[in-house]
Amino acid sequence: MLGTALCLSLLVFWLTHLPPNLEKLAKSQGSARMSDAEVASWLERSGFDRPLPVLYGEWLGVLPRADCGHCGVMQGEWGQSTVFRQPVSAVILRSLAATGWLMLWVMAVMVPTALALGALAGMREGSRTDRTISVATILTAATPEYVSGVVLVALFASATAGLSPLLHEAGWIERRTLFQGTASGAMTRITFWNFALPVATIALYGTGYIARITRASMAEVMAQPYIRTARLKGAGLARIVLVHALRNALVAPVTVILLQLPWLLNGVVIVETLFAYKGFGWTLVQAAGNNDIALLLGCSVVAVTLVLATQALSDLAYRALNPRLRVG
C-alpha cells in the first residue's frame, strides 16, 4: 500500500518533470519568448536541472532543501500554486470541501436508488419489472456524464429548448429556466435549483452501473438452493428477500460501490467543468491545463490516496459482509 503510493507519486513526479513540461513552466514563469539558453539558465536557477531522484526526495521531504531544510509533502509543505498564487494545501483543502458536498449528495441519491432498483429487478428474474428496470439501467450506464450533463441542461436549463420555455410561457416559473445551468452559485449556497443537475448527472451513470451489479448478484442469490430451502420451510417472498437474500446479495454491490469512488472522481471532474463548480475536479483541470506542476502533483497525491483508501475499504467491507472470511 505504502509502496504503491510511493511508486505512483514517483511516476507522477516523473511525468510532470519531463523536459517539455519544465520548459513550458520556465516560459510561463519567465516570458513566452525565452530562448533555449534562457530556459536552461532559468531551470538552473530554480534548481530543476538536478537529477530527478534528488528533486523527488526534496519534494517528498526526505532530502533537505537549500532554503528550508526538510520541507516536503511529508512535512505538510506542498509548495506554491502558480495559477492561484496560494499554497497548494490551501487550494486543495478548499476544493475538496466543495467536492465533498457534491459527493455526499451523489451518494445519498445514488446508493439507495441503485440498490433498491437492482434488488427489485433481480428478485424475479425475467419478470416485467426486471425487464423495464434492466433496459433503464443499461441506458443510464451507457450515458457518460458529459452526455447526460449536456442533455439534462438542454432539457431543463436551456432558455430556448426543452421544458423551461414551455413552463415559462405557461407562467409556472418566474425564471427563464427551470434549473440553473451552472453550479457556481452552489459554492456559497447549495439549493435544489443549482445543485440538482450536477448531482443527477453524476448519479445517473453510477446508478445504472450499481443497479446492474445488484441485479446480477440478487438474481444469482435467488437461484441458490438455500433460497429454495427457505421457500420450502414455508417462508413468504418478503421474508425470503429481506432475511435470506438481501444480505448475501449485497456483498458484490457494496464492494463495487467503494471501488466505484475513483470513477466518481472522473464524473466529478467532468461535471465540475461542465457546471463551473470550483471543486477538486475543476482545480485538477486548472492545474493540468496551466502546467501548475506543484498543484497537479498535490491533486494527484490526493486522488491516488483516495483510490488506494477505497480499495482497502472495499476489502474490509467484503470481509465484514462475508462470514466465511471472518477470522475465528
Binding site: Q224, P225, Y226, R228, T229, A230, L232, V243, H244, R247, N248, L321, N322, P323, R324
Partner: peptide
Amino acid sequence: MVGQEPMAALNPSM
C-alpha cells in the same frame, strides 16, 4: 424436504 447439497441448502451468512 432435505436436498443433496447440505452446504448449498443453508444460508451462508446466517
